[in-house]
Structures are given as structure tokens and as C-alpha cells.
Amino acid sequence: MTERAVHSVISGMSYTECPRWHEGRLWFADFYTDAIYSVTEAGEDLRTEVEVPAQPSGLGWLPDGRLVFVSMKDRKVMRRESDGSVVVHADVTDAVTGHPNDMVVDGEGRCWLGNFGFDLMGGADVETASLLRIDPDGSVTEVAHDLWFPNGSVVTGDGGTLIVDETFGNRISAFTIQSDGRLGERRDWARFGDLPTSRVVAEAVPQAVLAPDGCCLDAEGCLWVADAVGGRVCRVAEGGEILEEIMPGSGVFACMLGGSDGRTLFLSCAPDFDEHARSAAREAEIRAVRVDVPHAGLP
């Protein structure tokens, strides 16, 4: 474990997710205050960017600069127009089996969207899920299936590879993005352990060696990965070697490289991911730590 100084950027939130560095500010969703916010690198000038009554999650920007974001509980991807109005970009109700969650938007304006696959907060058994591609015109296509809670995702800088965390699968998967938007066969980008032997959440979670949640890519081709059950963020090389581990003193569920030089690692921290506990409290923070290698790829 590397000793690095971790400091608080913003506090008093419910459960922050999907941090993104965009145009000199850190953007993030806060699940249970139903909004997307932005703040400076120093934690100043907190702005409510858009209210999302059905719970925000993944977010990104189309090539023309319009914001797109997940509205989890009504199973839609929304779009904020240049005049500030909010419209439905895609309705994914018929294409998901759980809440849509994190997504990455690539340089072509395609949204790559995962979903829970089952009712996590309601205590249902684990079920695998599909990965969706949402084209700029809002059309929805299933591009991969049988993923164990597809979660944080990145697109490499050349636009040719999609990397997807599978939180319940002890693995990170990679797909070649073909010229027509189809994905090649799934392959292991990193594997930390076996697939769970039980689909009961309380039995599957302890089998996680590393439960990859949110992630981001650096300029050496490594991923910073939040471990949803381990209270740590890890720098992982392709193949699965953990090169560095940082313990921020809390649960950590997402991360993003940004700041003026791309070397500030922002961490979405909270005591746990339990919906009932987090929605009733304001104990979440975004913390930050300086690292050596800058950001690369998308988001």
C-alpha cells in the first residue's frame, strides 16, 4: 500500500458516483440528492448542474458538448439541450433487467451503458446483465451479455477498446470496438479471482478478491479501479497485477483522474453502498490524492 496524502474536496453528500473531469471542473452524480453537480479542483463553487428526480448515475458529453446522463429509476438516458431543456435521449426500459448505472460516452457520441441486472437493493439474487450501445440518434442495441454487474467503463485513447468492470465477477473485461459499433468477443483484461459460486448477494460479496466499480485510465495504459468491497483504490496493469493501492479511510466506489495536469485522482467515498443508509445520511465525500501518471482515454 502506497502512502499518499488524501484530502477532502467536497463533503455533505449522500452517495457520489461517476466523477468526470470536464472543462476545468469536476462533475459528479449524487444519488440521493437527485442531482448532478460540478465543483472546482479545490472544492469551491459547488454548482447544481441538473436535477434528476429519478436518481442520476453515469454521465458524459456528446461531441457537440451536450450533456447526457442516466436517470436510473425510470430507466432512461437523458440529454440536456443547448438551451438548458432536458429531453429523453433513449428509453432503455425494455433492454435492461435492473437499474441502468454507469456509462462512458465515446468520441463518436455512442453511449456504452451497463445495468445492475437484478434488484440489488431489494435483496434479489445476482443475475448477469447485458451491455448496451446507444447511438447518437438514441437507438439502443445490446452488444454484450452475461456480464456480472457491468459497471465503470473506459474507452482507450485510440477509440478501439472498451474496458468494463464487472463488480460481482472478480474481473475486468475488454472488447474490441469494431468500425460499425459492434463489439468483439469478451476477453479478460484483468482477473482477480473466480466467478462467485453463489448468487445470494450476502454469499457472493465475500468471494470478491477485488470488486471493480468505477474506474479511469492513465497514460501508461493502467486503470485506477475502486474496489467496492475492499475500501481501496488500486492501480491495475492489464493482466491483473496491482501496482499500487491507496486506502482513503472509507469505502470508495468510483474514481477519476483530472485536475489541471490530469494527476489528481478524485475518489467517491462513503461508508457503504446501502441505499437505505446512504439516503438517510449526508456522510459521503469526494476525496482526492495526487498520483504520478496523468489521465488518458474516456471518460
Results as ranks from 00 to 15, higher is better:
R278T: 09
H276R: 14
L132I: 04
S82L: 14
T197G: 13
A228V: 04
T161C: 08
D218C: 04
V164E: 13
L113T: 03
H89C: 00
D94N: 14
A237V: 02
R235D: 01
D165H: 01
A174G: 12
E245Q: 14
V77L: 15
M256T: 09
I242M: 11
L267M: 08
D165F: 05
P206D: 06
G122E: 12
Q178D: 15
L183Q: 11
A190D: 10
E238S: 03
S173K: 08
L131V: 00
S173V: 05
T167G: 03
G157N: 07
A208P: 13
R75E: 13
V293F: 05
V225K: 06
S71G: 10
H22Q: 14
Y37T: 02
R186I: 00
S85G: 10
L195C: 07
E275W: 11
E23W: 01
A54S: 14
I163G: 06
D83R: 10
V77S: 05
H7P: 00
T161M: 10
V155F: 05
N115H: 15
E41Y: 02
V88P: 11
V70H: 01
Q55R: 15
A219N: 08
V209R: 13
A29T: 06
V96I: 05
T93M: 10
C222M: 10
T128K: 15
F31Y: 13
E49C: 08
D45W: 00
L223G: 02
V154G: 01
R182D: 14
A208Y: 00
R182G: 14
R191G: 01
A211G: 13
F31D: 11
D34S: 12
F175P: 12
A144R: 05
T97R: 14
T48I: 07
V143S: 09
T176W: 00
A296R: 10
L62R: 14
D34C: 12
D30H: 01
C215H: 06
E41K: 06
S179W: 01
A35P: 12
A204E: 09
P248C: 06
R25N: 06
H7M: 00
D180R: 08
A296G: 07
L162M: 08
E238I: 02
V154F: 02
E220K: 03
S85A: 11
G221H: 06
G84V: 03
V92P: 15
G65Q: 11
N115W: 03
R186N: 05
V233T: 12
I134T: 02
R4D: 03
